[in-house]
Design a protein around this nucleic acid. Structure first.
Lengths: 353, 353
DNA sequence: GGTCCATATGTCACCGATGACAGAGGGCCG
DNA sequence: CGGCCCTCTGTCATCGGTGACATATGGACC
């Protein structure tokens, strides 16, 4: 591939002049400009971004590190970040952290070595102190989960508040046996949601029952035995609060399979078929695109050296989309056939708040 | 952040020697090695990958360009590629192409300028001739859709064969009014699936009916009016073949909402709730992770300069996962209540082939 | 006519790591 | 003992583009 100097040679000018033409410098005669442009076209010259970045000392790219790229939530986050980045001619590097806290550091440092302009990270470990050394040099924004053991910008959803709204909604309908199912690995978010769940129970004067708090490890398929167990006990749950959409999908498959559509159900996080299931599923509407946009905005503000005093930690509200699955009261469980047989009016959704 | 020369100064050696230590060169006395390592630790020195890449003339990174990062299919592809790449200490740059063919070129060229080691692309336009100039310099693998107007490696699913299997399955059950619904924008894949659909009809001695071929534009939500229209006509469809999972999700939401669960249904592409719906949804099991792995393997083989004569175009089979939704025969439509009321045995799935 | 400034182009060094090559010291072998 | 190879370290140039600075030309203005 051709270099700037080759173009210069062909156009009979210096390399610097070619550089000027490429970068639209004012002080180039139209004659020379024409010659250079012809040479560029003839050689199919394309500037080498690597050398530009090298000279500049920084790569015009941002890193995005998330637990799982294929997860719908993070996929949407990445998409939003990428769109914002593109408008700034900034590239996006992605990396999966997996669920192993031990792998986080090396994966993230592999990104940082590249002299990125910024980093967006949804951490999986509970210690990001290793990032302290990089903080002065490259802006970072934490998403979904805040930073641990360092101070950093973050954009998270209102896990506690959202969970509380959902559970409150259930207690208002008379439910007193409400199960919590969540992933023990995603400690931070699950933990905060669990606290919100408990708080709403306390509010309603209900004693928390450890037997109703189901935490599973690894894949969401492991939520299934938990719910089976909970339903075969005496004094079973009448409502389920699922802490993430992965587990919701697994749980609902099981519940539908076993004919347990009489259970009230709320999912933290929307998912594709939520509105199409019978009964349609009430969800807390996490808005991953909003998370991504917000994080990108904040990140680029920092990249641009905005000295504005920015609020460090943004908490996005998580509205409850009330569909059918939560409207099942505890007293008179709707017979499963009813909702399925009646071709109801189109699914209606109430939004709270 | 410190440079190699600073480390060298502190350790009292030349920069080159530091380089040797960093890269594990054999010919360094253990004494010097110790001094350098101490200096590295003291300064927290981290090699500047930008200058390494610049010097090497190539960035140890691959680009992945897909229509939509947030799409579950491409999300899984990216994840698979990223995992493969990570084992080679290679970074992954992602970019969304959207559905606008006009934007493809600039988005892809923005990646290529970065002296990537390789490119994986699911194109949205029907002319990739602009890539010809890059082909000699950087290996490329096309996924999901083959390259147009240039010769390049590709990894695609068996669109034609898969569609034919699905439709054959329906005709075997007696269906003669089978609708096709697909996205007109994803011309290539949809087109091949449409051909497979037609071929299977011909095979069964059924004349293709243009009124049953529903192509929508843009978002999958636009598939909904099409199906509504098809079902309100006289001589309506008794079965639906949905050409992608996005449209399947939209269509099933509509069908369930309007009580049309008596329609036979097959989706090209699995999706999270497919097995949980009643009736559970028969799908053609595209395997995005496999696509990603295969593409990554091929790409890195090329990156490593493998001169092995590799088959240019890989076609991955797409098995049919027969669940319930396709088993509805055309003659005696199962009453919608039955499947919903009976708490059946756990969902069984047959796999073809 | 001299000063000043805008225009237009070139020269050179530099970003940080590393390949090519040089050279010093020491051991081994014929 | 001379030649040779192995070990160890250093010097220098280089990758490609660009910032700092120099230079040259031609009005405009006093």
């Amino acid at each position: 591939m051709s270099t700037m100097r080759e173009v210069a040679l062909l156009a009979g000018v210096s390399g610097k002049t070619v550089s000027r033409v490429i970068n639209g410098d004012r002080y180039v005669s139209s004659q020379v400009k024409g010659r250079v442009e012809r040479a560029v076209a003839e050689l199919g010259y394309v500037p080498n971004m690597l050398s530009q970045s090298f000279r500049a000392g920084r790569d015009n790219a941002v890193g995005v590190a998330v637990p799982d790229i294929a997860d719908a939530f993070f996929g949407s986050v990445i998409k939003a970040v990428e769109q914002h980045a593109r408008s700034r001619r900034t590239a996006v590097l992605v990396t999966s952290l997996g669920d192993d806290p031990a792998g986080e550091r090396s994966a993230v440092e592999a990104l940082l070595r590249r002299q990125l302009a910024g980093l967006i990270i949804a951490p999986v470990s509970t210690d990001q102190s290793y990032l302290a050394a990089w903080q002065g040099r490259i802006p970072m924004v934490f998403i979904d989960r805040p930073a641990h053991r360092i101070e950093a910008d973050s954009v998270v959803e209102d896990d506690f508040g959202g969970a509380a709204i959902a559970v409150r909604h259930l207690t208002n309908l008379g439910h007193r046996r409400i199960a919590f199912v969540g992933n023990a690995a995603a400690v931070v978010t699950t933990g905060r949601r669990l606290l919100g769940y408990r708080a709403a129970l306390v509010e309603a004067g209900i004693a928390a029952d450890p037997e109703l708090e189901g935490l599973y490890l690894n894949g969401a398929e492991n939520a299934v035995p938990i719910i089976r167990d909970m339903l075969t006990r005496n004094n079973p749950a009448t409502a389920v609060f699922s802490s993430n959409s992965q587990s919701s999908i697994a749980l609902l498959a099981e519940l539908h399979d076993s004919g347990h559509t009489d259970l009230a159900f709320i999912s933290f996080g929307d998912f594709p078929m939520a509105a199409a299931l019978r009964p349609s599923v009430t969800v807390l509407d996490q808005n991953p695109a909003r998370v991504g946009e917000t994080a990108a905005e904040r990140l680029f503000a920092r990249v641009d050296g905005s000295r504005a005093r920015l609020k460090r930690n943004l908490v996005l509200p998580v509205p409850l989309l009330v569909r059918e699955s939560s409207e099942i009261s505890s007293n008179q469980p709707e017979p499963p056939t009813k909702s399925a047989r009646t071709p109801r009016t189109r699914t209606s959704t109430r939004r709270i708040p």
